[in-house]
């Protein structure tokens, strides 16, 4: 979205302009849905619930959107990220993750070499549902801007320039942030595969 359109929509939202909301929705409904699907998997009803909660929450707070705090995409994805985190928090216990962790543990071979790019990941591993569950869960642990960056760069194959436009920053800043996002992903992936799934209950 170019800066002028972004600015017009932002102003329209603050003024309660219906057309502004429609423009925002048309621009971002599909990308939000796509990214949420990537983070929680293919169950259409679950994805639909989260997408719905995201846009209803956004609709309620759209009048208070402040352009100085970030772009519309960043704002919207922050809300979506929150809804995804809520979804994962409700998976108590997270059986899918637990099984995926057990599967990972049972694998032969130098697993972290695959991540360190010293060796190719076997195709059957790449195709497995368990790996998808681990990667999704890892991504959901990251801050929203890291999630959005990694998905935009490595799944949507967007060039750094396009990502910079979405986030209203320089290409240099995007590359720098991507480096930090990759590091955060690796750390989170290792942690996911070392700790029991999902449960961080508070006990008094």
């Amino acid at each position: 979205m170019d800066k002028n359109t972004e600015r017009d929509i932002a102003r329209g939202l603050q003024q309660g302009d219906r057309q502004a909301w429609l423009q925002l929705y048309e621009a971002y409904a599909e990308p939000v849905l796509r990214n949420i699907s990537r983070l929680v998997g293919g169950d259409a009803a679950t994805v639909g619930d989260i997408v719905q909660e995201t846009f209803l929450a956004a609709a309620r707070s759209a009048r208070n959107f402040r352009p100085d705090r970030g772009t519309l995409w960043v704002w919207l994805w922050t809300i979506a990220r929150r809804q995804v985190a809520l979804y994962y928090r409700k998976q108590k216990p997270n059986i899918v993750l637990s099984r995926a962790q057990q599967w990972w543990t049972s694998l032969d071979g130098e697993k972290f070499d695959w991540i360190d790019t010293k060796a190719d990941m076997p195709p059957d591993i790449l195709e497995s549902q368990e790996l998808a569950a681990l990667v999704r869960c890892t991504l959901s642990e990251l801050p929203g801007d890291y999630q959005a960056l990694l998905l935009a760069k490595y799944v949507d194959n967007q060039p750094a320039g396009q990502i910079a436009g979405q986030m209203d920053c320089s290409e240099m800043a995007v590359r720098s942030k991507l480096a930090r996002a990759r590091k955060a992903f690796r750390k989170a992936f290792e942690k996911i595969n070392r700790t029991p799934s999902g449960l961080r209950k508070v006990k008094l």
């Binding site: 991540i115 998808a132 990667v135 799944v155």
Partner: peptide, 19 residues
């Protein structure tokens, strides 16, 4: 980058298009 792309692309698994 190619390897990371491969890894992250597993998130596309079993994901249906927008309804």
């Amino acid at each position: 980058n190619k390897r990371l792309s491969q890894l992250l692309s597993v998130t596309e698994k079993n994901v249906a298009g927008p309804d």
